[in-house]
């Protein structure tokens, strides 16, 4: 009983949403081409597990690869900006430009440049992950523990030793913040890119289903996307918290 009430307390908003969805469909007597009810949508997901799983796996793999590349480059460029004032002066405005351009606007340009295939989707995700990483890691590299700067001076630390033993570890919590931010964004960017120009993955699956008015399939895809994004976010969030406790 307590378990049930706990479940209700945590998930009442989701349940309410489902109830409203069902209620709306029933009361307005909507055709399933306009909006199917929750149960047929769920049934479509459950009766085609291989199809959904394969596409979800593809989208997640694309998002993961893109986020990894974006995080890697973002961190690398942040370190380069730390190491050289000249580079910092060049890279910071460039990063700002990147950040203010919406992903949607970048997709056609990148698709033109790189071709209409999976590597472009990865590149789009990487671009969306790059800037937050650059900003957060860049801030983390400067956010040193109190007195640590003086400590490394009196220890006679070389610049390389300072980077390795002080500056890089100090930036780890901020890298985790970047991860928490970029993972859901990366999933979103991957789906958006697949939707606009892909040939597989959840985004493509949604577009393909919607174009032939297979609304159960389309909304089933949305459902899987939502679950995947929430899962990714909570994993990244948990990882960030673990690191934060370890680092404070």
């Amino acid at each position: 009983m307590t378990r049930l009430s706990q479940f209700l307390a945590r998930n009442w908003a989701v349940l309410l949403l489902l109830a409203l969805w069902q209620g709306w469909v029933s009361l307005a007597d909507l055709n399933s081409i306009v909006l199917p009810a929750p149960w047929p949508v769920l049934r479509d997901v459950l009766s085609h597990p291989a199809l959904y799983l394969a596409n979800a796996a593809q989208t997640l793999a694309t998002a993961t690869a893109g986020v990894a590349i974006g995080l890697g480059f973002g961190a690398l460029v942040a370190v380069a900006a730390w190491a050289s004032r000249l580079l910092a002066g060049m890279l910071t405005p460039l990063g700002l430009i990147f950040s203010s351009v919406p992903v949607v606007a970048l997709i056609p340009i990148l698709a033109r440049l790189l071709g209409y295939d999976i590597s472009t989707v990865v590149a789009i995700v990487a671009v969306s992950a790059f800037f937050p990483t650059f900003v957060f890691v860049g801030a983390g590299l400067k956010d040193l523990p109190r007195g640590a700067d003086d400590l490394f001076s009196v220890l006679g630390a070389s610049r390389a030793a300072r980077l390795r033993h002080l500056v890089l570890p100090a930036a780890v919590p901020n890298l985790m913040i970047a991860l928490r931010i970029t993972v859901p964004e990366g999933v979103l960017a991957a789906i958006l890119a697949e939707f606009l120009m892909g040939r597989s993955g959840l985004g493509f699956m949604f577009r393909e289903a919607a174009s032939r008015f297979a609304m159960e399939r389309a909304l089933g895809t949305s459902l899987v996307v939502t679950v995947a994004a929430v899962l990714c976010f909570s994993l990244a969030h948990r990882a960030e918290r673990v690191i934060r406790t370890r680092w404070s």
Binding site: A148, L151, V154, W247
Partner: peptide, 14 residues
């Protein structure tokens, strides 16, 4: 060859 103990310990938290 220099050892310094600071007012605010300056231990690295990680």
């Amino acid at each position: 060859r220099l050892g310094v103990a600071f007012q605010d310990h300056a231990l690295l938290p990680w």
